[in-house]
Write a protein that binds this DNA or RNA. Structure first.
Lengths: 210, 210
DNA sequence: AAATATACTTTACACTGTTAAGTTATCCAA
DNA sequence: TTGGATAACTTAACAGTGTAAAGTATATTT
């Protein structure tokens, strides 16, 4: 079985080659300029060879989206050490903003573009595991905050959506050039941090007069 | 001058014809299926005729984006009658969610797609007037809330971004098929309303024990 | 050594946005 | 009324896209 294994490994290597080339094009030339032909050019194969490793372009973008989630998770490793769940929530929000602003291409694939979701729909199991795992971390943190009476008890789903919605809203508006038109460039990130701070402050029960 | 005027009017009529056809295609067949050729087919002109009325495809999408803002504004007319600014803020949020969920194609053009902003960048004045006007209504309402001590005084810009971010986040996640994967379809809208309710509640000072 | 399977390429199709050149119809002055 | 200019529109074409079918080597197995 050693030989079949080696072949499998080679296959994965070429897959990685394709993904790396795609991401490079994405970052260097923007989404609309990523084409199968350019990817093929970059890895020095013919365009159709790409189709021996990925069903279609959407599947490539789905793989990249998954890699994005891995990177976000790595980015969040440090959170585990924070004991106070509300503080952890705050830091999680800051991390999310950082990640999105520092990796707009990954973020786009993870949360904005349709292509990865189309690929997902074409798969046997249509579950969005990456997204589900990410949101569950947020929900768990919120539940812990409520348990410890750090924030008011409420529907965790609704609160999670509110908070995720807010940070996603900020990042996606920025990535798609909406904030740039309304806020000076150097104030965008600080204002985001301020917005997050504001909302954390608003829900922090310890902040209220007793 | 009557003749030149009539010509101008005709020109506007064909422009409207193009925009209507584009929007119809957009709604019926989805964004990726709107092509100049299909638009031309629908209005029974040759593809290149479209270019006599619009510089390029981006400019068509920009015009549609502007129409979307008009529709949002109309949708918000009713708000003027609400005296209490916090109540008005709440209703404004609900209106926003409604508008986005009921008109996903317009919403996409207004706040998600790159094309309209690219067209904007290509224009002499690069100001995003539509977006600016919309956000200013939100800011004014927040300022009024703070004046009347209905919510805590703070940086209006940051608070406005937080609230806009939240509702935009929810709508855009839904439009781009992220919520559909995590929340049962029939619970999406109610949960959004709940999220909005939650945040309004969290900032409402009258809700706090004195 | 012959047969088969693997890896890859060539060619082709049906699209896309957009430009340049060509055509027809309209209008206006002589 | 006729001739020339102008406006409105179309045809043809370019360079690109995703992708499928068929062809061609190379490597592996019998």
């Amino acid at each position: 079985m050693g030989i079949a294994e080696r072949k499998e490994k080679q296959k994965l290597e070429i897959k990685k080659l394709i993904l790396d080339a795609s991401m490079k094009l994405f970052v260097d030339e923007g989404f609309e300029n990523v084409s199968i032909r350019k990817i093929a050019d970059l890895i020095e194969y013919s365009p159709t060879t790409v189709y021996l490793y990925f069903k279609d372009k959407d599947e490539i973008l789905f793989s990249l989206h998954d890699i994005g989630f891995q990177k976000l998770q790595e980015h969040n490793q440090s959170l585990a050490t924070i004991k106070n769940p509300l503080l952890r929530l705050h830091k999680m929000g800051e991390n999310y903003l950082d990640f999105g602003m520092d990796n707009p291409e990954y973020y786009d694939l993870m949360f904005i573009q349709r292509a990865p979701m189309n690929a997902l729909m074409a798969m046997e199991s249509c579950e969005w595991k990456s997204g589900d795992a990410a949101i569950n971390v947020l929900k768990a943190t919120l539940a812990e905050c409520m348990e410890k009476n750090l924030i008011e008890k409420d529907d965790v789903n609704a609160v999670a959506m509110a908070i995720w919605g807010m940070v996603h809203g900020l990042v996606s508006l920025s990535i798609r050039d909406r904030l740039e038109k309304l806020v000076p460039l150097d104030e965008i990130k600080p204002t985001m941090i301020k917005s997050l701070h504001w909302i954390i402050n608003a829900i922090d029960l310890s902040n209220r007069p007793t």
